[in-house]
């Protein structure tokens, strides 16, 4: 099963490598990982997507909690939550297909943020499925480059993950 785990940790240089090292040392897989400082600069927030049986996910959360720099952790998959990922796509846009691509971007509620005679850069946010669907919708010969952030997640409702 796919799990999305949200982590609050000390914003210290070694912390990220401890998390990454834990996953490689114990043979867990990381599908994606995003991290950035929070409004409190002493803390970072990480969103990590992984897959495994219930037993493995239980070990993963326990092992993560054991890392001294991890302050708090929540398996978002256990409740209602929102996931968003951001994508930048460079697309060939020549005379014949400029309009077509533009229409697709509108349908998917993306925006074109860079234009040349022969290309667009499209910015798009959504859950992973939506971004996949967009890529499929654009003819594969036209896609020059795709950059995705991996999902960030937050639990629904009034309660926050904080100290």
């Amino acid at each position: 099963m796919r799990h999305i785990i949200s982590i609050l940790m000390e914003n210290e240089s070694g912390a990220l490598s401890r998390v990454a090292g834990l996953f490689s040392a114990r043979g867990y897989n990381i599908e994606s990982l995003t991290v950035a400082p929070t409004e409190d600069p002493s803390l970072s927030r990480m969103t990590l997507v992984t897959r495994g049986s219930e037993e493995i996910i239980e070990q993963i959360t326990k092992q993560l909690n054991k890392l001294v720099e991890i302050v708090k952790l929540l398996d978002l998959s256990e409740g209602l939550h929102i996931e968003r990922e951001m994508m930048l796509v460079k697309i060939k846009a020549e005379r014949a297909n400029r309009e077509e691509v533009k229409r697709l971007v509108e349908i998917f509620r993306g925006s074109i943020i860079d234009v040349t005679d022969t290309s667009y850069i499209v910015e798009m946010t959504g859950d992973g499925d939506k971004l996949d669907a967009f890529i499929r919708a654009v003819h594969e010969d036209l896609v020059v480059e795709v950059v995705r952030t991996g999902p960030s997640g937050i639990a629904r409702g009034a309660k926050g993950l904080s100290l």
Partner: peptide, 11 residues
Amino acid sequence: IDPSSISKNVR
């Protein structure tokens, strides 16, 4: 004392 020792190898 270590939660990760529990149900690691045997439930």
